[in-house]
Amino acid sequence: MRLHPMVKQRIAFAILSLSTIFVVLPVLAVVYLLLARGLPAINWTFLSQSPVHMMREGGILPAIVGTIYLIIGTTVFALPLGVMSAIYLSEYAKPGPFTRLIRLSIVNLAGVPSVVYGLFGLGLFVMLLHFGASLLSGSLTLAILTLPVVITASEEALSSVPQSFRDASLALGATKWQTTVGVVLPNAVSGIITGLILGIGRAAGETAPILFTVAAFYLRDLPHSIYDQAMALPYHLYVLSTQVPNAPPKIQWGTALVLLALVLGMNLVATTIRAKYRRARKW
């Protein structure tokens, strides 16, 4: 039996839209579940107190604080390194095998499994450099994981600055470096920040890289220095779901919701900056 081409088209389009629904519906269901079951857990006590009674009661403050410290630490390392690397690619690199090798490395770095970053951080920062399991080791590990995103986004932002801006600056007698720092970089700032927040947002939700480099099961005090271990939201959720028998579901869902809100919130900030910047572009 041969179907009429238009009938075939109808069937095909129906299958395609069903597939899309199959992707989208579970996402909405997950977000709904997290809101429905997580929101009732969230109150001031939950956000401002430490866990008590073997983590079956109390709040998640140390985990929130630890994750915020990791976000700051990761930014401190990933931003300058990523931007300098992007400046090289956008302003200085000439096409050739070296540049090709850099790009290939960035692609591969982006594809390295997160747990392998954890092994690397353990080998280099925790063991070889003797930073121990600490905020410093964790931040450095997450920074390397974030680098591909920061480099790629920053390079795109830098290269989208029109050549005429550079020409004008060079014609006025500025050196190449002065032009890059004084003219190109300021015009790429919002693109760079967008990429940075996207990258850090992803890093903040990662568990495997911090398992052996910083994460602590339970700490009574908040970390005091960069050489201290810290609790972190993703690891705390893992602990609550697998290591604490009979942990109340309410606390689990609440922790999951806070983590998701933090990560998606950062994504939202990034996309808002991007949208604004596209509208306000001077060229």
Partner: peptide
Amino acid sequence: VEVLAGIPSVV
């Protein structure tokens, strides 16, 4: 789809 990409693996 972007939200899906952003959900942490532990969640």
